[in-house]
């Protein structure tokens, strides 16, 4: 029972971490390696709005979302746009930005003292004879809701449809009057905000640390690669796969294997089936 309940919680957390990355890659084909940095920024922003500026919790979250969305858009507008279409340069550039942000935080004194966010609701409850914090339940509920809202958004709103159109065929979308660069900016902003939402939901369960940024990046890549880069439903399914695999190894082998599992998943998936378990295969593009 423990395994099932915590497996689900872990899986939804992974899905939350990965959604932003998957969204950006799905729409603009940019592998945003600054994802972990955006995650940490939003956590830190909420913390500083809460403790330094003295806003209440809800407004600090809102403000942090806006800030991180703007940061995401700026990263695209000023850096990534210059290396658009060169996937490897995009990776190197975004990774360098992420590195600069994360290590900048570390240098700035983001160590020693622990930074924590308060949980939304204190207390715990029993689910299937397992005691769980209410916050974790909230994570699952809100996480599920976000996946649902995203699905509705991309299928039924104008801007969502435009984004999907670009994801499928950028040139055709351009010919139909969709400005691909503007859409990519929007997708970066959205993706950054999703990273922010994940941070706000997940960080109260632990401390805000710089290393969390690197871990989130690895986990997000793991989920997206296993699910198939560019496939959103694949990402959600893959997060369950990796989520349960992690919980199982944690129970039977030990917690230190969690990251090993995620990394092994990335390597194995890329070696065996680069388009991911649920992705559409494009044999000639990915392999020689």
């Amino acid at each position: 029972m423990d395994i099932i309940v915590y497996g689900i919680i872990n899986s939804v957390s992974l899905a939350l971490m990965a959604l932003g990355f998957a969204l950006i890659y799905g729409i603009s084909r940019v592998a945003n390696f600054a994802h972990g940095a955006l995650y940490v920024i939003s956590g830190f922003m909420v913390w500083s709005f809460l403790n330094t500026a003295g806003l209440n919790y809800f407004f600090s979250i809102l403000a942090a979302m806006v800030v991180v969305g703007v940061v995401g858009a700026l990263i695209y507008q000023f850096v990534l746009i210059r290396v658009r279409g060169m996937p490897v340069s995009e990776i190197i550039a975004s990774y360098a930005i992420g590195l600069a942000i994360l290590e900048g935080f570390r240098w700035w004194g983001f160590k020693g003292m622990t930074y924590t966010l308060p949980v939304f609701v204190e207390g715990g409850m029993q689910v299937m004879q397992v005691s769980v914090d209410i916050h974790r339940i909230l994570v699952v509920v809100i996480g599920g809701a976000i996946v649902g809202v995203l699905w509705l958004f991309t299928h039924y709103t104008r801007i969502g449809l435009a984004l999907r159109g670009m994801a499928q065929d950028e040139r055709a979308a351009m010919m139909l009057g969709i400005d691909s660069d503007r859409m990519a900016v929007v997708s970066m902003a959205f993706g950054a905000m999703l990273a922010g939402i994940a941070a706000v939901l997940l960080l109260p369960l632990g401390n805000i640390t710089v290393d969390a940024g690197y871990n989130v990046l690895i986990l997000a890549i793991a989920v997206c690669v296993v699910g198939g880069l560019g496939s959103w439903m694949g990402a959600v399914l893959a997060s369950f796969l990796i989520g349960f695999a992690q919980i199982l190894t944690e129970v039977y082998w030990g917690a230190q294997y969690q990251m090993v599992v995620a990394l092994l998943a990335i390597i194995l998936t890329l070696v065996l089936r680069p388009s991911g378990i649920f992705g559409r295969q494009k044999a000639l593009e990915e392999r020689v």
């Binding site: 890549i221 090993v260 392999r287």
Partner: peptide, 16 residues
Amino acid sequence: LRGVYFAIVTLMYPLF
């Protein structure tokens, strides 16, 4: 593997 796929997988090797 080509391009991005090779880049990502090699990035993961040292971490792994």
